[in-house]
Design a protein around this nucleic acid. Structure first.
Lengths: 327, 327
DNA sequence: TTGAAAGCGCTAACAG
DNA sequence: CTGTTAGCGCTTTCAA
């Protein structure tokens, strides 16, 4: 049913090789036969079988992407920019979501490799020596985004530690004397890769301790309740530094429902600068995480690796503070 | 470098066929040889080459998805649910974004077919007879989501017309005497497929005309300015019915900046019920568009088609009105 | 300039 | 139960 090179060859009375030369613009073919072949190919609506080509060439022109959740705005933006950049270079994108399940993550990576993607872009949740070894052994190049898991694996991200210091200093500069740092549960962080959150926490702690600011760490899922308690327990005006805008948005929703005025009764700082924020009032202060640039850079780097070129093993992109009205 | 069936066959002193039987759990093989082969395969870390398998079997176990923009929350939710469901059935997902460019759309669909995806799930922007013919001629099954383009092509969506009637009646029931319908420019709608918006508009018009309600249609990109004018020109309290939550969010942002109280000074109704709304105050009234169910159903249907089974050509899913505080 | 043939790694049909 | 063989559709090398 589908037209193959052989079909065209039969009709034109030439060999498959010649048809190949005509169709793929290869040299060493007589212009006239070429025209004849192209004409027939067009009439028959010939389309190449990219699976067969991949097998023959050992190259699929596709990238495997593993992220955990495209509903997370950060990853939606990331995937969007990866897809756009990949397309420009003629690559297609195989996306899989691993739902924060380390076993599933490994399974999915394996299957992408089985499908012979030419390169992998990963935002891993797994961590540890075994996982790093697993990745290193894979027969395809890979780029890690966001959660660094090993200095040996090519990485793209921002300086989370410094960004967190900058954010904390900015909060302090607004006069807050008590800051709560909100982040995912430590229990999860032991199993999962939480490099970003760890670095942010470290930056926070180093700053508040050095500046002698009172603080607490809220690292469990009942953070809204914890904040309520905090509000009734502390007299001074407090600020919340959320390790991710998603937390900040949930908290803002909660506080608004209670009639608490954000920016007046309490200060909030986010992290990531996701674009949903444009619709939120008051405007949330946050850290702009250049996710589009990161996606683009990841594609550039992975293609360089695929082509055997050298890249910087660690690339840190520029971030900056977004001043909103929430502090 | 990569281990093949032949490598294992050589080591075990059997033929490729036998190794195949062992590895793929096929019958007619002696348990002992099977064990021996499996052991070697494991030691060598054998992994199947899915490209080769695809070529041999004429099946890639992958679905091609074409949407225009994963940054649009509606499509992020859709893609998420498609990916999850596909994974359950052992299918992988090739996603491409066409940026509302009809030519690009055709190019991308063609390339997905060249890559031998087993089925396509499309949210087309193109329309017209040529495009429908193009789709019909494709040698793979396909499902259309959202924008119906032909009664002959399998479609999944909601009854946009009826939903719009329900929404309009609900607005009217709140006492509004003047309603503005906000939707994308007509100019774009002539070229692009705007089935959803057209149906919503039709439902709106049929209702306001029948109930003798004053109305206007704002179908250009300067809708915020248009609304400002409307607000100063009309004395009665007006409602805006936005054909898409995205418009509603932009408008709410604009109005909030001007200090206009939504739900009090003006009424707003959205469409789609995207999940960003949970963070927005006041809560936007909207129409819940069951995008997750649609994605799931699309995968089920496309797999049925791939397997040669029959499906309902048109599937309408349940929607419902979300009552917020914006009316 | 063109043809023939081998091979990519796997599946499947047919013998033995 | 196992081996052999012929593809799948394309690329690539070597002859002619």
């Amino acid at each position: 049913m589908r037209v193959t090179l052989q079909d065209i060859a039969d009709i034109c009375g030439v060999s498959r090789g010649t048809v190949d030369r005509a169709i793929n613009n290869k040299p060493r073919i007589h212009p006239e036969t070429k025209q004849r072949i192209l004409k027939v190919a067009k009439e028959l609506g010939y389309r190449p079988d990219l699976v067969a080509r991949s097998l023959a060439m050992g190259k699929t022109m596709s990238l495997g992407i593993v992220v955990f959740d495209i509903l997370n705005r950060y990853f939606a933006q990331l995937v969007n920019s990866i897809e756009n950049e990949a397309k420009k270079h003629g690559y297609f994108v195989n996306i899989t979501l691993q739902e924060k399940d380390p076993e599933m993550e490994i399974r999915l990576i394996n299957e992408l490799v089985d499908r012979r993607v030419d390169g992998l872009i990963l935002c891993p949740v797994s961590k540890g020596k075994d996982f790093v070894n697993f990745l290193k052994k894979l027969p395809v190049p890979k780029i890690i985004i966001g959660n660094m898991i090993s200095p040996d694996l090519p990485f793209i991200g921002i300086n989370e530690y410094q960004a967190s210091i900058d954010a904390t200093e900015m909060i302090i500069s607004k006069g807050y004397k008590y800051i709560a740092f909100v982040c995912p549960p430590l229990a999860d962080r032991n199993k999962e890769n939480s490099y970003s959150h760890d670095e942010r926490l470290r930056g926070f702690l180093d700053t508040v301790r050095q500046k002698d600011i009172k603080y607490t760490i809220i690292d469990h899922w009942k953070y809204c309740e914890a904040i309520d308690e905090l509000l009734s327990a502390r007299k001074e005006k407090i600020a919340l530094f959320c390790s991710g805008d998603i937390y900040a948005l949930e908290i803002m929703k909660h506080l608004k429902n209670k009639g608490i005025k954000i920016g007046e009764d309490i200060g909030i700082m986010g992290f990531d600068g996701i674009d949903t924020l444009q619709y939120i009032s008051p405007k949330l202060s946050s850290i702009y995480n250049p996710v589009e640039d990161i996606g683009k850079k990841a594609v550039e780097n992975i293609i360089n690796l695929i082509e055997g070129k050298d890249i910087d093993n660690h690339t840190l992109m520029d971030y900056h503070i977004i001043e909103g009205n929430s502090l």
